[in-house]
Design a protein around this nucleic acid. Structure first.
Lengths: 350, 350
DNA sequence: AGGCGTTGGTTACGCGTTTAAGCTAGGTTA
DNA sequence: TAACCTAGCTTAAACGCGTAACCAACGCCT
């Protein structure tokens, strides 16, 4: 009370005041099994601790025990939107139940060894990060510090080889669903959008590949033609770059009007698709009569647009089970490789 | 190398290997001013540190120095969406430049003393949290631990009295802009939407009050009538609850069709407005001819909808300055009370 | 030769916590 | 009576780091 600088209470303070040693305080406050402390002492210590507003010093504890309860989630763009927040929520709960604390770090712009070093500094039990932030050297550094690594990304390929746990999203499968749907709907000239932006581009490429595969078009057929599976008629899938702006959407639609309108569009995303839908309506194109449109993620936006947007949603069959598996990886029990979401078509009006 | 459990290198390891004392290593690695170490020794120490993959133990350091570089941002629903992420980005950068590390904690469900205790455990320099998570007792606990508190919320009232820094959003002013705009546009029967959901409701109430004020209607005029400012004709503002679902939007529009269509709607939000727009179009209502619609936040969604959604956007005049002020609060230099966003109307087609 | 300033370090301690090991008083057993 | 338990503590040693205080050796001046 009289001290100028308020110094938080320590177990030493409690010990003095309760007339016991610090060890006793520690035993009481941690309910250490095997410690023989009579109830009278216990309650005395506890009430003093309460009175002093004691709160244990996490740093000191982790310094002593050598391990922290911290799990670092390095913010990334790989998994985003409602899916990410749902996932984060489940994960956070699962970890908390096991005594871990999930902390989000970022937005992070550094990568590789430099990033790994800054993560390792806080000696977390595990790091969950986008695989674009991880390099072999960085992973090695973390492993040496006995920190588990979980790489999140589009493809588990590289990370898997490095022996870290992975969490992937099946963008290819998502694209396949969209491609197949469009072909079944009768589309023969499909346009697939790839975002120009850095991180999204990779995912766009994978989704594009998926659309091709779903539409029964050979991988490398650029803007060429392939044979539609089953139907026998020709299906083409062309790739188009677009930025996340209304102007870019209008420009792309302009290009289509010149070069010939596709009859089916996979907009990469609900958001990209929303912009495209607006631009198409502006151009007087009737959706879905002239152009069918499929988005992805199934966000609320789909239900705001008229016509309502058809979308491919990533469904998690059992979020809790996923969280549990990740917790396993965090504890170092196992190296897990998960891809816990299944793409499902949500058909609406476009 | 031969150790089973990989133990991260410490300065002691480096010291041994470089043939110097730990003090020297510390001096070198921290570039301690005033320490007289010749370049030869410096580089030797550094290379050994590199070789061993040394990374300083954040806990040990903060234990020693008594202060951590950690700033805790407790996730909340009060400030959300694109505004929040932009803000977080600026803040994170500003803090990093000053040597702080911003960490997001949450989603947090506990509150009061219990929450404060768990935050205090990691001895951060400051905690930034929604004011709905803070109680006087919790704030007191944090203050005793010499941790700065920044309360984020709709109204700085309560928190200000408790002597913590505040960061508020002028929801009332936002509503005012919307209300004034609708009246100027000729609307006389205005409907203002308030979300049913917990956290959003408070903000909805404030925005509603703003709409009333902007429309020149007395505060407590429920669904009664007031005198339009300047025009002399009567303006009414009615309040409507709605959930964030398409069904709820349709229901509300249904109510309007029965009770009489308003000629102006403030949808609380772009998202709520988007749902309403869809429902209105479904009902054959022409927007904006029959009903003018104003959202808020000015997210990309506005440019996807047709007609394009008019919105009130919160503009930050100087994000960096804001970040700097907050950093001041974090350092304990000053108790700041900020409301760094100005509502601005972005007129589009609705 | 003695005093002094500078260079290049080292020693020693404390931060708050956990935990293995020891110690004491009283009771039980041989 | 001595040896031996056991309950109920206490002592002391870490953990990794920062830093004030100290120290030896050397060059230089008087």
């Amino acid at each position: 009370m009289t001290s100028i600088r308020p110094r938080p209470a320590t177990i030493t303070d409690i010990a003095k005041r309760a007339g016991v040693s610090t060890a006793t305080v520690s035993y009481v406050l941690n309910d250490t099994p095997g410690a023989r402390i009579p109830e009278a002492t216990r309650s005395r210590v506890r009430s003093v601790a309460d009175e002093l507003g004691y709160v244990p010093h996490a740093s000191a504890r982790s310094l002593r025990t050598g391990s922290s309860d911290l799990v670092l989630y390095v913010q990334m763009d790989v998994v985003q939107g409602p899916l990410a927040s749902r996932f984060l929520h489940d994960l956070s709960r699962g970890l908390r139940e096991l005594g871990y604390t999930l902390m989000q770090y970022g937005p992070e712009r550094s990568r590789g060894v430099k990033a790994a070093r800054s993560w390792a500094g806080m000696r977390p039990s595990a790091v969950i990060a986008g695989d674009d932030r991880l390099t072999p050297a960085g992973i090695e550094l973390l492993r040496k510090a006995d920190i588990r690594v979980i790489a999140v990304g589009t493809s588990s390929g590289r990370a898997k080889e490095l022996g870290v746990s992975t969490l992937t999203m099946d963008h290819h499968g998502l694209g396949e669903i969209a491609g197949r749907h469009l072909v079944e709907r009768g589309c023969r000239d499909i346009a697939s959008v790839v975002p120009g932006q850095d991180v999204l581009r990779q995912m766009g490429e994978r989704r594009l590949a998926g659309v091709r595969s779903g539409a029964g078009v050979a991988e490398e057929s650029g803007s060429g033609a392939g044979v539609g599976s089953g139907t026998g008629s020709e299906v083409t899938v062309r790739r188009h770059d677009m930025d996340w702006t209304p102007e870019s959407a209008a420009e792309l639609v302009g290009t289509w009007l010149e070069e010939g309108l596709p009859d089916g569009v996979f907009g990469y995303n609900d958001e990209f698709s929303g912009l495209l839908l607006g631009a198409l309506v502006d151009a007087g194109v009737r959706v879905p009569e002239q152009v069918a449109l499929v988005g992805a993620d199934d966000v609320m936006l789909c239900q705001m647009l008229r016509p309502r947007l058809t979308s491919v949603r990533m469904e998690s069959e059992d979020p809790e089970a996923t969280a549990r598996r990740i917790v396993d990886a965090v504890r170092g029990r196992a190296e897990v490789h998960l891809s816990p979401w299944t793409p499902v078509l949500v058909q609406r009006e476009t």
